[in-house]
Simulated assay, not measured.
Amino acid sequence: MLGIPEEEWGRFTGFLVEKVQPRSAGDTAGLRGGRWPTMWGGNEILLGGDIITEANGIRITEHDQALDVVRRLKVGARIDLVYLRNGNRITASVVLPERPLIAEEMEIHMRRQ
């Protein structure tokens, strides 16, 4: 379901991409989100998306690691990614634009005015 051959699971831990916002850095890098809603551990997740395995040379093996990488990013900085799609390794490099507001954030912003 994740697009990784079973014998390769140990090598390909990473961060599953569920959604990619239009015009975001992920969109610019070519990342694809999932499209198959699935229950996993009592939570609904979207399977079928890319799996980020490295960011700026750091192997992503745990959720907290991925969050640490994201927290250190600044607008205008370059990020080099390695991700898997259908078991194939893909590399991308993108300069981080200012993140666009997503629909939910726009609604909150509009209610405050």
Score class of each variant (00 low, 15 high):
L96D: 03
P100S: 14
I90K: 08
R85Y: 07
L73Q: 10
V75S: 03
L101Y: 10
N88H: 13
V82A: 06
L84K: 05
V94R: 01
S93N: 04
K74D: 12
L81Y: 02
V75D: 04
E98D: 12
K74F: 07
L96W: 07
Y83M: 05
L81K: 03
N88R: 15
P100T: 12
I90T: 08
V95C: 06
A92P: 09
L73C: 12
K74P: 03
A77S: 11
D80R: 07
P100K: 11
R85W: 08
T91N: 09
L81M: 05
S93T: 08
S93H: 02
P97G: 15
V75E: 09
S93L: 02
L101E: 14
I102F: 11
Y83T: 02
R89L: 12
R89T: 09
I90C: 03
S93V: 03
N86T: 14
P97A: 14
G87L: 14
A103C: 01
V95L: 09
S93Q: 07
R85K: 12
V94C: 01
I102A: 10
P100Y: 11
R78E: 13
G76Y: 06
E104R: 10
S93C: 01
L96M: 08
T91G: 10
N88A: 07
Y83A: 06
L81N: 01
V94A: 02
E98C: 06
I102M: 09
L96R: 05
S93M: 04
R99A: 15
L96H: 04
A77M: 09
R85Q: 08
V82K: 04
A103M: 11
V94N: 00
E98R: 11
P97M: 13
